[in-house]
Design a protein around this nucleic acid. Structure first.
Lengths: 340, 340
DNA sequence: CAAATTTATGGAACCGCTTCCAATTATTCA
DNA sequence: TGAATAATTGGAAGCGGTTCCATAAATTTG
């Protein structure tokens, strides 16, 4: 039915080997022959079948992305970077969307067993040792973005530093009781975003000589509802915080909603700081810790492409900077003004 | 290197045909034999190579999505639905992100020539007749979402009705000068979102017996900056509108920004209505015309799967309803109050 | 119990390409 | 000009499965 390399060979009056050679512009093919083949290809409107090609070369020119796409705004931004970069490399992209742990585990065991993709980018998820060894054994080039594993090149944002900067600025504004809404830790306990941010929070306080009240931290879902309920919990305490630092912008939006519900004015009654720097934060003029999300995606692709070209490269830990973007949801603490 | 069906056959002491049979649980295989094969598979941790499978079956179990993903919030929502549904059908998903017309045309000509995907979903883009015939000739099951072509099953929202409802409600609130920010028409001129919405706007006005001032319509990019500059243009007129209806929520956010810049209070000085109903509209409490975006994505997958199963089905035009969601950015017109 | 069926099974052929080797043709060199 | 060398080229083998056909094993049946 479809036109194959044999049809082209026949039409051009050459052997299939020759056609293949011009297709891959490999070795020397006499110019006159090349012309004949090229015109036969044009005539027949032939395109080589990528499946048959992969069959023999072992390459698919496809990159996989395992990502909690549906559930996180952050993922979308990273994916934007990945998508852009992949097309620059002329690679196709297949998405493995993770909605729950079962799905994650399924992908972690299945993907490396099939040779569907030449390389893999895993976003915001850390394979445990067993899963890691699957990828390693399969020799599948893998890069982690917003996640860490000693077995793979990992691109992480400096979460500790980001949280530190955020809280430090809040303290500088006179906020001595800062609520911290942390995200639920999934997977790898040794190295994760939530832990690191907590450490940053503590560092800022201890540096300021303030003992941090552990009651001021609430761990919750990474979403709006989580942020909202955590904020409500925090704000209903007898001694509520004057500022709340949330682990994601989306949670911070929940905080904003909670504040509105309690008739608290932001930032006069309550300062709110987010984390991520998704587009929404700009629109809402939310102060936040900005992560270079698209860049992380693009760099992830670049790293995995490099791994594909150069099979053996030791895993590498790349730390990207995050930075503070102060907008309209943070201001000096009331208390502070009163003291002056 | 990797374990093949031959290894399994040898280990189980059977022929490859038999292994293939149990893999595809086709025909009858004696239970005892099946057991042997299954245990050999488990032993060797064998998984059939999907590439080799596709080679012979012609099926890839992959769906393609051609979508302006990076550039539109709307696309992300549709994609969410697509991603969910695809995984329900146990299909992989490859994304062809379209950033400009060249890229679109490249995908339109290239994708059907390769048999990488079993089916295709095209979002917010209408292939012209030449492109359509490529898909048709290749026999590639194709479904359009938020786009229309007589050659393919198309899922569209009732844009005319949505715009009509929106403007009608604005008129009912006493807004007789309603600015309309339209999106740039790309591709198919006979049937497109922008045109339909304009018709809806006109219908609402003529029904109210008001002659619509064509100066009140501005066509611009589908993004925030476009909405903002269009709104500024509209609001700087000698007789500015008291309400603005934008063709996308993102544009509406631009309108909100413009209003803020001009110190206009929304909704007291200016009512703003968007279109789409992306999550952002809920957060900003933006009144909007809600489209069932995820549902469109899911239905798109269902339709294309159906096409894959049943090769010959005539193209079908499915119209989904959109509905008005009134939130805080729309209210009665000042003028109206004064008249009372 | 042998013949006729029915059920299981082995394995060659093939999917459309790349690759490698041997054969052919063109070039260079003495 | 003929041998040696280099540049081209044809085409078989093989990638890892599925499928189909022929054969073998198990069941039925008279």
């Amino acid at each position: 039915m479809a036109v194959t390399i044999y049809d082209v060979a026949k039409a051009a009056g050459v052997g299939v080997g020759t056609v293949s050679r011009v297709l891959n512009n490999s070795q020397a093919v006499k110019d006159s022959t090349r012309e004949k083949v090229l015109s036969a290809i044009a005539q027949l409107n032939y395109a080589p079948d990528p499946i048959a090609r992969s069959m023999i070369t072992g390459r698919t020119r496809v990159l996989g992305v395992i990502i909690p796409f549906v559930t996180r705004a952050f993922s979308v931004e990273v994916l934007r970077g990945v998508v852009k970069a992949a097309s620059r490399f002329n690679y196709e992209l297949v998405i493995y969307n993770v909605e729950d742990n079962d799905q994650r585990d399924e992908y972690f065991t299945q993907v490396p067993m099939r040779r569907r993709v030449d390389g893999l980018i895993i976003v915001s998820l850390s394979p445990d040792e067993a899963a890691a060894s699957n990828f390693l054994k399969a020799g599948l080039p893998t890069v982690l973005v917003d996640a860490y594993s000693p077995f793979f090149t990992s691109l992480v944002v400096n979460n500790m530093e980001g949280a530190y900067l955020a809280v430090k600025s809040l303290i500088a504004k006179g906020h001595h009781r800062v609520g911290f809404i942390n995200g639920i830790i999934e997977g790898n306990f040794k190295f994760n975003q939530a832990n690191d941010r907590l450490i940053g929070v503590h560092r800022a306080f201890s540096e300021a000589g303030i003992v941090y009240d552990p009651q001021l931290m609430v761990t919750t879902e990474w979403n709006r509802a989580g942020g909202r309920s955590a904020a409500e919990q925090l704000l209903h305490r007898p001694d509520p915080p004057t500022a709340i630092f949330a682990s994601s912008d989306v949670q911070a939006v929940g905080v904003l909603e909670a504040a509105r519900g309690l008739n608290l004015h932001v930032p006069d009654d309550l300062s709110v700081m987010g984390f991520d720097g998704i587009e929404l934060s700009e629109i809402l003029e939310l102060s936040t810790v900005q992560q270079p999300m698209q860049q992380m995606g693009e760099l992830g692709v670049a790293k995995v492409m490099d791994l594909i070209e150069n099979a053996k490269r030791p895993p590498e830990l790349v730390r990207l900077d995050s930075w503070l973007v102060e907008r309209r949801t943070t201001s000096a603490a009331r208390l502070h003004l009163e003291l002056i």
